[in-house]
Design a protein around this nucleic acid. Structure first.
Lengths: 193, 193
DNA sequence: AAAAGAAAGTGATATACATCACTTTAAAGT
DNA sequence: ACTTTAAAGTGATGTATATCACTTTCTTTT
């Protein structure tokens, strides 16, 4: 359930970690969003479509992944409560998506459309700054993941992930974690021994 | 040599690929930058320092890399003419850098300090939008690199890089390309056979 | 509660790649 | 031009990991 008292709205708290907002400003921001619910196994993004929405997860857990020509799944990332998720390539460039995003659990979501996000950032420098900062941090995280893929062994990457996101191991099948780490599920299974 | 005629300034052309600028606006933007030259093997960023500058390369080629505990070099990225380069993690968070950036050729550079960039983006929404877009594209490129590390073989990654940046293979030693791709130089050397 | 389906563990085998050692070729510095 | 240093190629060997096949355990669905 969403808390409709705007002063304590989780999205407001999330945004205010980066930029302070007046009540009026937050109302304006929130007016650009919609809410939706999805059941486990439902899609947020499907390969081939031009992605029109960026989601913010209020409840649940999703996977973003690429399917290769043999149907092998490569996990790009997971996202949980208070994380933003979409296919940024498709969303930013408005080109057909090459990836899928679907729910690993029943989810409650806020979303903003491409048009509304553009409107909002044009009219409200604070929100441009907010997303700019989010994008910078996202980029830094991706850089670190690349570095980890280059310099760390499979075991090291596993341990780092476990350390950084212990909740993930309670909620996500190990075979998906294996895929995220770039190894086979069999290798992951034999890791601790 | 830099072209000092501001109408044709390469940085102006670069920015105007994303946001249009008046002469006055570009003068204002440019007033926040300085120019510098570096010789081959000189550093732009050294491990341990808090990075104060973001560079825009007018001439030359650099590598950004991480050194592990055994002194093994892991290439994060290369950058050439009209590319931005810095350690974004250190620059954005103002924390000590874990990486090095140094020149593979003699370089001519423009740079903007952390303070000036902050001033400029606060005062000029257009430049906030410009860098926001750059950051989005940078993030997309990193996502694609991760995907490539997960789904493509070494040979495939080599071929894709060769296709995307053929100039690189004229300017950069193969052992650095091997490091960028995440394989040993010996393996890279044996690839085409 | 039973049946079906997905996830996880494990052995055997094949393979891509790292590493070490050495040689050859090319580039940089004096 | 000569010397030194770096880059690139190549053989031999060891190792991590993929893949296939099968079993066991856990989760969902009806």
């Amino acid at each position: 359930m969403l808390d409709n008292n705007k002063t304590n709205h989780p999205l407001r708290q999330h945004i205010e970690e980066i930029v302070p907002l007046t009540d009026k400003e937050f109302d304006f921001v929130l007016s650009h969003f919609e809410t939706t619910k999805k059941r486990k196994h439902q899609y947020l993004v499907q390969e081939g479509e031009i992605v029109k929405k960026e989601y913010w997860i209020t409840k649940g857990c999703v996977k973003s992944y690429f399917l290769n020509e043999n149907g092998k799944e490569h996990i790009l990332r997971f996202a949980m409560e208070h994380w933003w998720i979409t296919d940024y390539e498709s969303f930013v460039k408005q080109t057909p998506s090459k990836i899928n995003i679907d729910c690993l659990e029943d989810c409650e979501l806020l979303y903003i459309t491409f048009e509304n996000r553009d409107k909002l950032t044009s009219q409200m420098h604070k929100m441009e700054r907010f997303w700019a900062k989010k994008s910078k941090f996202g980029r830094i995280a991706l850089q670190q993941r690349i570095l980890s893929l280059l310099k760390n062994s499979t075991k090291e990457r596993y341990d780092l992930l476990l350390e950084q996101y212990p909740q993930l191991f309670q909620r996500v099948p190990k075979k998906l974690i294996a895929s995220y780490l770039g190894v086979s599920r069999e290798t992951l299974s034999r890791l601790d021994s």
